[in-house]
Amino acid sequence: MSITEILFWFLSVLTLVSAIMVLISKNPVHSVLWLIATFFAISGHYILLNAQFLAIVNLIVYAGAIMVLFLFVIMLMNLDVAIEPKRSMWMKFAGVISGGLLLAVLLSVVRTSVDLTNKTAQLNTGDIGLIKNLGHTLFTQYAVPFEVSSILFLSAMVGAVVIGKKN
């Protein structure tokens, strides 16, 4: 087992464990902290795939900005166990059934796909994730979506002002 493989398995286990912990921890603040751990582990995967830019952006945007926002909101909302709404047994049952079915389908999809070997990203190879190549692709091949996304941000900004400003 090479060092990258060991790292890969370690990060995978870390991702899965912390993702499950997000769901099962009772305290919402703990959930958010576990979510941050998940993002760090996923960033580790990105680095293994030689996508440094993505790894850093993932950390800055998700683990940094969005999670801090999450924490603030949770602390401001002052969630208590007492005010947590009671979910009915049937809802839980339906959730487990539908989630389990989706998991089963996704697993079988991955298991039965015949042509994945050459198409999945290989560890430690490929240089599309480097900033230089990424920038080149972004500003040539994907220039139109890149520019169009500015409309998206503009509309979100207008919306934030409309919603946030006092009358």
């Binding site: 994907y142 139109v144 979506p145 169009v148 996304s149 409309i151 998206l152 509309s155 979100a156 207008v158 919306g159 409309v162 919603i163 009358n167």
Partner: peptide, 24 residues
């Protein structure tokens, strides 16, 4: 292109979220 589909759906949706809540 599926990227444009995603962007189109989002540009369609985000202003609508705001407009839905415009009666503050």
């Amino acid at each position: 292109n599926l990227l444009m589909l995603f962007l189109g759906i989002e540009i369609l949706s985000i202003p609508l979220y705001i407009l839905t809540g415009s009666d503050k």
